[in-house]
Design a protein around this nucleic acid. Structure first.
Lengths: 189, 189, 189, 189
DNA sequence: AATGAATGAGCCTTCATTCAT
DNA sequence: AATGAATGAAGGCTCATTCAT
């Protein structure tokens, strides 16, 4: 039990170190020895948990994206009205960006940089399925513009990675509300 | 004259090579020897034109951003009405993203990755001064929402780097129009 | 009893794994973890039976050579005539090379490679004492050339490691006979 | 000119270092840093002349074998009688083994160890073509036993790698003659 | 101005070995 | 007796940079 826990902790520490280092200086700065040292572990130990560097980064990416999705659709309720539901998701994601600052900017970096080996296309919005479905419903109800999800995403969710990524910014409720309104106005009919 | 031209050509070839390699595989993939080989030049020659790798990347970034600005404000006319002027700029940028595909995705990569040493903050919109001024005028005229330029940018220009970055996508006029409308709706009063 | 047997089995399995791996790819390919995995054992377990890698290889060498000797002088009878006795030994060794293919090519590898720490000189023929004595008798009887055992070995036994080492070769009785005749002709008076 | 010579020298020094180290302790002992240091060169320099370690070893093997062949068939004259010609070749090879002690024992090591990537089978005697042809002629003339070249080689040339490989042995003409006689007796009709 | 050769530092990874259980 | 986890040291290799020409 204690044994297993210790292993899990080490794995987590390694992922965390990688996350931090990549955020600071890109993949090239996250060398195995630094990752190891930061996690208080020998370089060789990394290879007990990950096949190689690419695998380490890939797993970090996958788990981070899962964390993202989990947060995005927290308390998701299909029966709610479209706008309300959308607003909830939007705020969830905003909250994620603020709460998991490091994870969020790592994801942003992955989206525009070839650091992750992507099996499925990065931009197919697969990880946002419920949101895409919601938009579809909104379009059927005549509330949301008849444009492809791709665009809807680009004008509602994507801007957040820019707006909220700043470390120094203190985000006020007003600011968030303004941002949400812009998003909603961009896609509402 | 021919001498000088040859030098300029070499410098340009080096920048172009770097651009291509970084786009393909990130900074780490753009090693000096590859850059040199791709530009039909000896590795040592790079150091006649650039201080070191970082300088090479920095100059590439600066010049690419200048190219961006130049294109964004092509035929810019302060006397035009706000919306028309904004639309012109927006389409200019879209055109840039499509015409200079490589340059554009490089810029996108720079925006979310620490590959460029940034003296001035990346996100101060300094390179978009005329657009910011235009927005200000729009706000004074009561046409545009009273939110900070930062947000205006996030919901009008920034999404393009997502929407138009896809290599495979064939962009139809309809699509562009829909995208512009979303942008405008997001910020108009 | 069962306890002890299990231990012996493990030790044997480890030696066998080492043998196989070294034959396939040389000493460098026989790393402790592979040896362990192949023997269905933890790497740490190896060190219960052997001091270190060198010791493992040494013991493998010694035991293999003992196996060789045991086979070479199977049914050895001092009272038989020289040529008959020599022929018997020669065929014993040939049989060993064919039956214990792996062991034989491992021994061959040891003979020309510094993988074993040799206390006694590899080439002193110490493990072939009875054969050397037989040759001596043959020389006293005027049947065998008056040249040193070293040479006698080189032209009778040593060639077998070349001739019979081929995995794919199907050895016919004719072939064996021809080989033996060559050996005998080389040293007979 | 001096430039080119210096390059060739370095390459040669690297091959020589590799040869020495492999002879002393097998391939595993010939690590790139040792090879480099022994050749008074930086580890990175090796990669200017060789693709990787395997390539280094392969090239060493190929060139050494060429050296062997060149020496073996020095002053080769097809018109000479079979036995005389064979004797000349045999002595050439013996001379090679004595003169190029290191090269010879390296070749011996290669013959029984998987350190070289072999496209053609190691044992097809391709590098001894003239000798094989000579044997054929000898068989047609009824001088040499009707056995395959493989066996002829095993009982005439192969034993030398055992007999003459010893560093400490001082080889007397008598010894050489005895060895040659054994070889000839083994295969003559 | 231009270069090919050269390199030291450093990176990813492996391995023989040990230790806590 | 047995092990899986852990590791320091080392190995092969790459890269940004320099130097002699």
């Amino acid at each position: 039990m204690a044994r297993l826990q210790k292993s899990i902790d080490k794995r987590t520490a390694l992922l965390k170190s990688t996350l931090g280092l990549i955020n600071e200086g890109g993949v090239q700065e996250a060398c195995m020895s630094k990752v190891a040292k930061m996690a208080n572990v020998s370089p060789a130990t990394i290879y007990l948990y990950f096949e190689n560097k690419q695998d380490l980064v890939n797993q970090l990416y996958n788990e981070t994206r899962e964390l993202f999705s989990k947060n995005a659709f927290k308390d998701f309720d299909e029966s709610m009205p479209v706008k309300k539901s959308f607003k909830a998701i939007w705020y969830n994601i905003a909250e994620f960006r603020l709460k998991y600052n490091e994870e969020a900017s790592f994801l942003a970096q992955c989206e525009s940089t070839p650091i992750v080996e992507e099996d499925r296309c990065k931009k197919d919005l697969h990880h946002l399925k419920p949101l895409v479905d919601l938009w579809l419903r909104g379009q059927q109800e005549g509330i949301i513009k008849e444009i492809e999800p791709y665009l809807l995403y680009a004008y509602t969710i994507y801007p957040m990675s820019f707006v909220l990524n700043k470390e120094d910014r203190k985000v006020e409720p007003d600011f968030l509300e303004a941002a949400f309104n812009a998003a909603w106005d961009a896609i509402k009919l």
